[in-house]
């Protein structure tokens, strides 16, 4: 207990003696965590959205005439022979018109002059959910194009591809901001601790002569780094949560965020980021202790 009291007192003394540098370090750590966690939050949401989109992939095959009852099994067999599908839905002109009417809601009157036959019949092919490779879906699309009566195959793959590219780009940003986080946290904490050591050089020397243990001298410095990690990471994550709430409230109307569920990190991931921050700051302080303290 006495030991702990002394270590905490020494840590407090260190923080007081270099408070200016400590505040700057805290801000840097907070900002680093905020930048990294912000991009990581977007990335994880994009990944989830990407998975959702992948699940919803369907290929719409527009036909130039209605498929007869005799033709249905033939088409189904040819499609299933090419690749496994979850289901195939035949949509007649009348069904397509009914769907569109339903989607138009109160404005369906605009369709009155067009008549129920103006939409083409179609086939909706739902590939198996595990077929999430875009190139394979592309091949599937090309195959469907070769079927009889087919005028056009619409897959929405272009959009999915662009979404995939964006996610990849975001992954790079996350990796870069992660590296920035590692470098800035370890470097700045190590540098601040160096200032503490230099400002207390005389005192540390006297403590050594008085027989202070290695723990007595080193632990407060280690604790100082850990505290920077705890406070900096907590503040960074708290700032991100406030930003997240603002985004959700600001963009909660119809639009991009309506398409996907934009969620915050689960507890485990939040704890992992906090822990990573603490570990990085502690490593930074260890660097300084090993380099500048000789006992």
């Amino acid at each position: 207990m006495q030991f702990l009291t002394y270590i905490l007192c020494q840590t407090g003394k260190n923080l007081r003696q270099t408070w200016g540098a400590q505040v700057m370090t805290l801000l840097t750590v907070t900002l680093s965590v905020l930048i990294f966690a912000f991009f990581f939050l977007i990335y994880t949401n994009m990944l989830r959205a990407s998975a959702q989109l992948g699940d919803d992939v369907r290929l719409i095959v527009y036909l130039d005439q209605e498929v007869t009852e005799q033709m249905r099994p033939v088409l189904e067999t040819r499609i299933r022979d090419f690749g496994p599908v979850e289901k195939i839905v035949f949509v007649s002109r009348a069904e397509a018109f009914a769907r569109l009417s339903a989607q138009m809601g109160k404005e369906k009157d605009v369709l009155n002059d067009l008549g129920p036959d103006f939409l083409p019949p179609s086939l909706e092919v739902y590939p198996l959910k595990n077929l999430n490779d875009l190139s394979k879906i592309n091949q599937f699309s090309d195959f469907l194009q070769t079927l009889p009566y087919v005028t056009k195959v619409q897959s929405g793959l272009d959009w999915l591809q662009r979404f995939g590219y964006f996610t990849s780009l975001l992954r790079i940003v996350v990796l870069l901001s992660g590296s920035l986080l590692i470098i800035s946290m370890t470097f700045i904490v190590s540098y601040t601790l160096r200032l503490t050591v230099l400002s207390r050089q005389g005192e540390l020397e006297i403590l050594r002569l008085l027989g202070a243990s290695s723990a007595y001298i080193r632990l407060p410095l280690l604790l100082e780094g850990m505290l920077q990690g705890v406070l900096g990471s907590s503040l960074g994550l708290a700032a991100l949560y406030i930003l997240y709430q603002w985004i959700v409230s600001r963009f909660s109307g119809p639009g991009f965020l309506k398409l996907f569920e934009f969620t915050f990190f689960p507890f485990e991931l939040t704890a992992a980021i906090l822990l990573a921050g603490i570990v990085l700051c502690t490593v930074g302080s260890l660097f300084s202790i090993r380099r500048f303290i000789r006992i």
Binding site: R208, L209, L210, G211, A212, S213, S214, I295
Partner: peptide, 10 residues
């Protein structure tokens, strides 16, 4: 080093 530290306390 620990021995020296203990000795210095005495």
């Amino acid at each position: 080093p620990v021995g020296i530290q203990q000795m210095r306390q005495k």
